[in-house]
């Protein structure tokens, strides 16, 4: 049985390489171009990515079984290999992404304070906090804390929205 993770990784690398190559081929030449040109390195990188992706696919197909722990042997980067993320977790992570994306949509029209309150409440509830008055109180306290820190203390012009 092929190593599924590496196979997916290899295929993703090929897709990224191919997409990048198609864009690299569209880089326009100019009279100022040097011997290598602005498209020189991108083309090399694209072919490298496709080639490496193909090698990873072949290795995954030949090796079979679960992958050896890949990645760095350095200290903090080792967290990447220490986590046992299962594919079923993708949907849960996607939910958090959706909450984050929703924040981006509402922060300008609603303003920073209400948006960050909603973000705190939604992310807490999504993370498993119980639906009680506490989650709203903590969200409100957190929103005011961040507003005081960023807007009042650091003087950063965060979107005022409907309150502005």
């Amino acid at each position: 049985m092929a190593n599924r993770r590496d196979l997916i990784g290899g295929l993703a690398a090929i897709a990224i390489g191919a997409g990048y190559l198609s864009m690299a081929l569209e880089i326009r030449h100019s009279a100022l171009d040097d011997a290598v040109g602005p498209a020189g390195l991108p083309k090399v990188l694209a072919f490298l990515m496709i080639g490496l992706g193909a090698i990873l696919c072949v290795k995954a197909a030949l090796a079979g079984g679960p992958a050896r722990p890949a990645g760095p042997v350095s200290d903090e980067a080792a967290t990447a290999e220490a986590t046992g993320i299962r594919f079923s977790g993708i949907a849960r992570a996607g939910g958090l992404l959706a909450i984050a994306a929703a924040y981006l949509l509402v922060v300008h029209p609603l303003g920073y304070l209400p948006s960050i309150f909603m973000l705190l409440v939604a992310a807490s509830l999504y993370g498993g906090a119980a639906l009680t008055w506490r989650v709203f109180a903590i969200g409100a306290g957190g929103a005011v804390f961040y507003w005081l820190l960023f807007v009042q203390l650091l003087g950063i012009p965060l979107p005022p929205g409907i309150l502005g």
Partner: peptide, 28 residues
């Protein structure tokens, strides 16, 4: 840094190099 799989380390590096090419060309 890629003790388990040099190929994966290289793919990750090429990805970083690709992102570095975004923007204004350093020569032209």
């Amino acid at each position: 840094l890629s003790g388990g799989s040099l190929v994966k380390g290289l793919i990750a590096a090429v990805l970083g190099l690709m992102v570095a090419t975004i923007g204004t060309d350093p020569v032209t």
